[in-house]
Simulated assay, not measured.
Amino acid sequence: MEAPTAPTRRAGVALLVGAATVIGLLGILAGIAAAIGAGAAGAGSGVAVPVVSKAQADVPDNVSAVVNGTGLPGRAPVSITRQGPLMLSVYEDVSAPTRILARADVWASAIAAGAAVLILVPVLRSTASRDPFAPRNAPRLALAAAVALVGWGAAALLPVAVAGTVVPGVAAEAGAWQPVFRPDYWPVGFVVALAVLAFATWHGRQLAADTDGLV
């Protein structure tokens, strides 16, 4: 009765590892495609950056296109829409690097998530094979946590940095705006969880080694 169990478990492990590998690769490819798409946008393509009004202490949540600079001589047309924080959309004369960096919240998150999943594939394999304290599992978990943290930082900070370069060029008639840093903090939970798992795995490895030494 026990004989079919091992092949079945191996098939399940292979399926899990294969699925994780595909998901990781798709995440990286999706992030690269998003960055390329942002940079390759045609003439007149805009860039949206997070801002807050200098003139108003509170802008209503239902705000939409409250300013429109179309037709201002020598100035890029702009509009304001509510997408979580206010997003200042500026059109025309936006360089490809600016458009790419402004979309870092999309491509940096996807690439970091995909890379972290690929780093964790060997951990999944060894854990599913009943060896959670394999020698390299703790460093891989720590590396995945670091990659996720860097990805979160890039996704949160780069659009704000771009806003700092875009806002000064907005016409005064379109209102007074300044960049705002309002990141999503939920990805930090994954970073902390991976770091805790890395420490627990390292500690478990040390205990296992001490136990083996006593036998």
Rank of each mutant, 00 (worst) to 15 (best):
G153V: 04
T81C: 00
V94Q: 03
L29T: 14
M1T: 14
L25A: 10
V94A: 03
V123C: 03
W202I: 08
V150N: 02
L118Y: 06
D93L: 03
V90W: 01
F181W: 12
A174Q: 15
F190Y: 14
L120W: 10
A163R: 05
R103M: 14
V52M: 06
W186A: 15
S64M: 09
L16N: 03
A48G: 15
V117P: 11
A115G: 10
L72W: 00
G18S: 04
A96D: 12
D131P: 12
R182H: 07
I36G: 11
V188N: 05
L214N: 08
D105W: 00
V106E: 14
I36E: 10
L214K: 07
V162P: 07
Q178G: 12
L143W: 04
N68E: 13
E92W: 00
A138K: 00
T8I: 12
L207F: 10
T70E: 15
P187K: 05
A108C: 14
V162F: 09
A35F: 00
P179W: 00
A174T: 15
K54W: 05
L197N: 03
A146G: 13
V192N: 04
V160L: 04
G153A: 06
M1A: 13
P50K: 04
M1H: 14
T21H: 00
V67Q: 10
R10W: 10
V180M: 05
V117N: 13
R103K: 14
R182V: 14
V147H: 08
